[in-house]
Amino acid sequence: MERLTKRRLLTLSAATVITTPALRAAAQDLPPHERQLYEAARREGEITWYSGQYNAETSEAVGRAFNERYPGVRCNVVRSTSQVAFQRLSQDARARVGQCDVFSSTNSGHLTQLKRENRLIQFKPENVAGMLPAIQNVDPDNYFHTSFLGLFLMTHNTRLVSEAEAPVGWQDPLDPKWRNKLAVGHPGFSGAIGVWAVQMRKMYGWDYFRALERNRPQIGRSSQDPVTTLNAGERSVGLCVPIGTTALSMSRGNPLRLIYPREGVLAAISPSGIPSNAPHPNAAKLFMEYQASAAMSAVVRLTFNEPLRGDVPPPEGGRPLSETTLLAPSLEEQERLVPEVRELWRDTFGV
């Protein structure tokens, strides 16, 4: 697996010194549909992105690369878990203030709810036409579009658990031998964990989580928290962890190994949308074009995230999507059932 250093990340996405010639050069290099939006976005000067999809390091790299591609339009990255980002957006709405220009969540139900409540702008980026066909047109009405293809699986600390001993299916961690050895996020904070809980209940019923609770997992917030916990040697197996964050940690020498469960991996085909009260609507549209572009996919693959386009190679060391079984509840199930499993989770785990 390719080793990624902080210096390389900074080099790949370093900010550009903004000068008048740089602005002219940037505009000339853009395709016509982006150039027109860029001119309007420059007059607005900035965009605020509520990022609940990529981890903090990737989100910041995306923001810096956007700044370089579109000098004069600053990307303000507000990174949190998806549920926290949605709560922040809801608080903005109650206060009748517009702070968010683009909202991105791993819980697609957040976007379907916002659409139903007439809280999103209708917009279709032209760059969507170049994305993988399977993730296009998630909303035929064009109120939101795919901006993240997250794969979530299990991982183990190879110093604490050998490959031969590691679980191979989603039900294996329910064995009593894993008591006090598991780590997982929380659906009250993480959109991905909420979607995973819906999928596991769909496959095995809520008894799956009753059995999991008896093994006393360490419950964090983000789906990424188990990676930190396993790196520290506090637990040995992480459940529903993102491939990107785990692979990035592995590339830095941490003793982790990806586990592709026999039943399949959770696929979070996750969207972004523009709130109807976005203070910088043209910059928001430009950012949506950027999310669908080859330029952003080229950035996210460097931190081992899945590109959204076929014209960008997959990340180093990952299993091809064609060889992976993908599991995902429908958009309707995510909106309807994630709030339900959050309450069941609190009742079962007491947190």
Rank of each mutant, 00 (worst) to 15 (best):
R214Y: 02
S293R: 02
R214S: 11
N231C: 14
S190H: 07
L266M: 15
R235M: 06
L286S: 10
P281L: 09
N282R: 14
E234W: 05
G220R: 00
P261T: 11
P226F: 02
P242M: 11
T228S: 13
E234S: 06
A197Y: 07
G273D: 08
D225E: 14
Q291K: 01
G273L: 06
K202H: 14
E289T: 06
G185S: 12
V265G: 05
G264L: 00
G244V: 05
S276N: 12
P187Q: 10
E213N: 13
A192P: 03
R262S: 13
F287D: 07
C240P: 00
Y208F: 15
R201H: 06
G273T: 08
D225P: 01
N282S: 14
G185H: 08
F287E: 03
G233R: 13
G253L: 08
N277T: 14
N282G: 04
R221C: 09
G233W: 10
P281D: 10
R257E: 13
Q291T: 11
M250T: 04
Q291F: 11
P275A: 05
G194P: 04
H280M: 10
H280A: 11
R235Y: 00
V265E: 04
P187H: 08
N231T: 12
I193C: 06
P271V: 08
L212M: 13
P261I: 03
P217Q: 09
P271L: 06
A197N: 08
D225W: 03
M250L: 09
E263T: 12
V241H: 10
S249P: 06
